[in-house]
Design a binder for these strands. Structure first.
Lengths: 218, 218
DNA sequence: CCAGTTCTTGAACTGTAGGTACAAAATGTG
DNA sequence: CACATTTTGTACCTACAGTTCAAGAACTGG
């Protein structure tokens, strides 16, 4: 939960201090837009159109600000993308983690979480899927910064699944003979596979079958 | 096996007849390059760089022909991409299908096939992963033609997994109580998930765990 | 109200994406 | 060899990606 919003890294922290001091001591014309909102909107655009598929014009249109403001505030398309990806991690990727931590029987919780993902993805505008999955497929080998961010998100999710399995083994719901680490990896793989499948699925049938078979396998 | 190279569709067939008649009756200068090889090379480029990430210049460089020849022969970037995707289906996507049809115990065959995928993906240049997976993530909602091709590839693979499960149930390797259709979907999901994970994996550890847990779950 | 600073707007700029047009060269046919 | 037809490389084109910049607007402290 608290890990969802990680402690600012040194650079961020310095920026923040600097920004605050400046806003008190010097101050120029204030921003006409909220940078946080802008990052959020940029995230939506990258999510729907991909990195290469997003143009500065798309961003300008979505954010409702001028190109100058955009580059003044964020520096470059890639820098904005990086911020958007971090925002995704902090606002979206944690949703699954939180669902897995709710109380109740382990298998039911797992099923509910997977069904939630499937419904979310099938209902989402443009069937955008999961930004982390999309970035993994699009940029993995050409953008090490993005790849590392996605890797960390996957690591965290894998870990949450492992913890869930271990809990199930303690409560007796899941056979203690099975390797919780391996099952954690498997569930991560299954969940991300689901989100990929959701991008081209015609209906929910296949996704439902995957979820059924997964829960059945535990 | 024979399905690997499908019978020419009407349009292809007509083109072929026309081309042959022309080559007998009129005939001009023959192509200096082999279109099949060119499509193969284009496939490699799209595979490594994605659709949006591939420029006409990239294609010209990789194919070693002029832009004029490129557009004369293939019409547009997108048309060439479509041919490249079909080529992928016929030359690459079938490899997994063939592996699943080999003789031997079902579980061992499944393990071998998944391990083969993982090794292939980890060793591949630029860790390009699976073109179908990449296209699903990049283009699903913006290119219906490509989406349909990927859908069909996924359908075929899912079917091969289902057949494998049914065979395992006949030989007693797999419990007859389990739904082979659902397990087919699950294995498709797992395999495509693996190929996605391979794009950002740091080592083979996670992939090995996924494979172990998958085979264990049957 | 002026200095100093930061933000905004919009034009401008460079390079390239994606594709077309064309003339010259190459080739099989008779 | 002339002919019809095709390929090919080059030049060219329009649009836009991605970014920069100049001019001015808004704010604060003095």
């Amino acid at each position: 939960m608290t890990a969802a919003v990680p402690f600012p890294r040194p650079a961020d922290f310095f920026d923040l201090r600097l920004k605050n001091r400046v806003s008190v001591l010097i101050m120029g014309r204030p921003k006409q837009f909220d940078p946080d909102t802008a990052v959020e909107q940029a995230m939506e655009v990258f999510w729907r159109k991909g990195y290469a598929g997003t143009t500065p014009q798309d961003l300008v249109d979505a954010l409702g600000i001028g190109k100058g403001s955009l580059y003044n505030a964020f520096g470059s398309k890639h820098a904005l993308f990086e911020q958007a990806l971090r925002r995704y991690r902090d606002s979206q990727a944690v949703i699954l983690l939180e669902m897995l931590e709710e109380p109740g029987p382990v298998k039911a919780r797992l099923r509910k979480a997977l069904e939630f993902l499937a419904e979310l993805d099938l209902a989402a505008p443009d069937r955008r899927g999961c930004l982390a999955v999309n970035v993994a497929a699009e940029l993995a080998r050409t953008d090490e910064t993005a790849a590392e961010l996605v890797r960390r998100m996957f690591d965290r999710t894998e870990d949450a699944f492992r913890a869930l399995i271990e809990e199930g083994q303690r409560t007796g719901e899941i056979s203690p003979g099975r390797d919780p680490v391996a099952l954690g990896s498997l569930l991560l793989n299954t969940a991300m596979g689901l989100r990929l499948m959701a991008r081209i699925a015609e209906g929910s049938d296949r996704l439902v079958r995957v979820i059924d078979a997964t829960v059945d396998s535990l």
